[in-house]
């Protein structure tokens, strides 16, 4: 059996990774097939306000008579978009910064890490809140705010990983053979620190969904009628005691999606640790 297949089987044998992968697959399925939802997510029907779960509306209707199931399904698409794009943007900025700080050292490292320290001095959600307060609520701004919160986290992690590998024999050999600094970073360091970055990104998608929902909950997410989980929870909060299903559906959906990425990230980390120990 090829090594990669054996390795994947080992990952699949981890209960944590398996549970996480299943939840993430379920979530991806919901996002991809959200178009098959029974109703339009913004379709208002005042005659069917706050109806409990029944045959026509499996998860009931909300305060404007909109179908909760359809909104939750479309919410998964929106949160996936926010999670993937904001983590992608954070990686695109954070990884080069971390590589530069770790590889160059000296003044570059000092200046970059002091900037990172300043950004990390804010609790994540607070920084995102402040950015949204300045930029105003919109989907693009929401993704920018969530990305900005994660940039210092990725930069610091990547720098730490670079410092671990930069004095290893294979990196020193590449330098001795005359490889340029850029080549050493891109061909020798980056591929060898990809593992922790992948773990961080997987966990980061869960965090991004959580932060986006938090911003939506305080009214700083996307537009008010968008089927975003945090925004749905905010608009349904006054009905929480009388009509709890309006709150339960988006809340459980968000929790399961975040749990899936957390489990998968944990499983990946354990798998990478085992691989590192086996070497």
């Amino acid at each position: 059996m090829p090594e990669w297949r054996r390795s994947l089987l080992r990952l699949w044998s981890s209960r944590t990774a398996r549970a996480g992968a299943l939840l993430v697959l379920l979530y991806l399925g919901a996002a991809v097939f959200a178009g098959l939802a029974p109703r339009e997510p913004r379709e208002i029907d005042q005659t069917k306000r706050l109806k409990p779960p029944a045959a026509g509306h499996w998860l009931g209707t909300d305060e404007l008579g909109r179908d909760v199931l359809s909104r939750v399904l479309h919410g998964s698409r929106l949160s996936l978009l926010i999670g993937l794009l904001s983590v992608g943007a954070a990686l695109a900025v954070g990884v080069p910064l971390g590589l530069a700080a770790g590889e160059c050292g000296g003044v570059v490292d000092l200046v970059l890490m002091r900037c990172v320290d300043v950004l990390l001095a804010f609790p994540g959600i607070l920084l995102a809140l402040a950015i949204m307060a300045v930029l105003g609520p919109s989907l693009t701004n929401l993704m920018l705010a969530v990305a900005a919160v994660n940039v210092p986290v990725y930069a610091r992690q990547v720098r730490a990983s670079v410092l671990q590998v930069r004095s290893l024999d294979y990196v020193l050999s590449a330098r001795a053979l005359g490889a340029s600094r850029l080549r050493v970073v891109l061909r020798h360091i980056l591929p060898n620190i990809a593992g922790p970055i992948i773990v961080l990104a997987t966990l980061g998608i869960g965090t991004a969904i959580l932060e986006a929902a938090g911003l939506g909950f305080v009214g700083l997410g996307v537009e008010k009628d968008a089927p975003e989980w945090g925004t749905m929870l905010a608009s349904a909060r006054e009905y929480v005691l009388s009509h709890p299903w309006v709150v339960l559906a988006p809340g459980v959906a968000a929790s399961l999606a975040i749990l899936g990425f957390n489990l998968l990230g944990d499983g990946l980390r354990d798998w990478l640790d085992t691989r590192a120990a086996a070497r």
């Binding site: 959580l210 929480v240 005691l241 809340g251 929790s255 957390n262 944990d266």
Partner: peptide, 21 residues
């Protein structure tokens, strides 16, 4: 503990409100 870090704090707050109503 895994579920604990995954549930949004504001959603959990609402669940507690319903549970201890």
């Amino acid at each position: 503990s895994l579920v604990g870090v995954s549930v949004p704090v504001f959603f959990l707050g609402m669940v507690l409100l319903v549970a201890f109503q």
